[in-house]
């Protein structure tokens, strides 16, 4: 009786947010897939009836290059962010708490600084008459005519800049609990610093690394503002195309079809990650039993 009452009260507590998320999160996602089968009307909105034409229109010759660029930029920025985040988390976890808090604060502030402000800062930094450009020209690394902005390298650098804190925070969270006397023990037994780091530290933070990969890679696939503001016409990503179809040459069904594609690219790795995790846990419990 009591547990029944508890169940009911749970339902009452959970229902509003559940309903909210179904209506404003789950149904819209389903709509993205559904509306990809709608024709476009004269105003770029949703036409009558159903069609396969919108999906077939995705065979635009410029798309494969854009999809490929979205993919490799996502992979590269994720790799760099995680590669940098691991030593930083190691360092942070080892530090005494006063310095740790200062550095942590310094990492969190850019994380919370307005996204547009951060992109804007890069536009100032890489600007044609900016200090950095003049410096590079003075050293002789680049020509006066080179533009630092509006190319895919600028997009990549700003993406890395934006996502580094996303990678550091989860890895640090798992490194924080690490017992560093284990590393000292490994070294006492003759392991080199790097060997101890690789065989003792890395396995412990692997869960944090996985989280970091997810929270960097998936948003990176959907990057839109960065290529829009620091990239040029040759560095467009899938996100830009979606926005263009919505705001410039208005065609909502086409935008919807593109988004459905991106949605698959987002949810498949998520499901894969979940499945791998599940398998790993099953293997561990099996090993634990034998």
């Amino acid at each position: 009786m009591k547990s029944r009452l508890r169940n009911i009260s749970n339902w009452i507590i959970g229902a509003p947010s559940f309903v909210w998320l179904v209506v404003f999160y789950a149904i819209p996602i389903v709509l993205v897939f559904l509306l990809a089968f709608k024709p476009v009307d004269a105003y770029g909105g949703l036409g009558e009836g159903w069609t396969l034409k919108t999906i077939l229109d995705l065979r635009n010759p410029s798309y494969p290059a854009i999809i490929w660029r979205t993919f490799w930029q996502g992979i590269v920025s994720t790799t760099v962010c995680v590669a940098v985040a691991i030593p930083i988390s190691y360092q942070l976890a080892r530090m005494n708490s006063r310095w740790k808090n200062v550095i942590l604060l310094l990492i969190i502030v850019p994380f919370w600084t307005n996204f547009l402000v951060r992109i804007y800062a890069w536009r100032v930094f890489l600007h044609a008459d900016g200090i950095f450009k003049n410096l590079l020209v003075a050293i002789g690394l680049i020509e006066e005519s080179t533009t630092l902005l509006y190319n895919q390298w600028a997009v990549l650098v700003v993406m890395i800049y934006t996502y580094i804190p996303f990678a550091i925070l989860p890895i640090y969270a798992s490194a924080e609990k690490f017992d560093f006397s284990l590393i000292d023990a490994a070294k006492d037994l003759g392991a080199s610093s790097f060997y101890a780091f690789r065989r003792v530290f890395l396995p412990v933070i692997s869960k944090g690394i996985w989280t970091a990969v997810m929270v960097v890679l998936i948003p990176a696939f959907g990057a839109y503002l960065i290529p829009d503001l620091v990239g040029g016409p040759s560095s467009e990503l899938v996100g830009d195309k979606i926005a263009q179809r919505v705001f410039i040459d208005r065609n909502l069904p086409h935008a919807s079809a593109l988004s459905a594609l991106l949605m698959l690219a987002v949810f498949l790795p998520m499901l894969l990650g979940k499945w791998l995790n599940h398998m790993r846990r099953r293997r561990q419990t099996r090993e634990g039993r034998t």
Partner: peptide
């Protein structure tokens, strides 16, 4: 339902809501 919105790119949340409202 609660967890995945944290990871789904904002552009997808934006366009899916736009499609709902339209």
């Amino acid at each position: 339902l609660i967890h995945t919105p944290l990871i789904v790119p904002d552009i997808l949340q934006g366009i899916s809501l736009l499609l709902l409202f339209v």
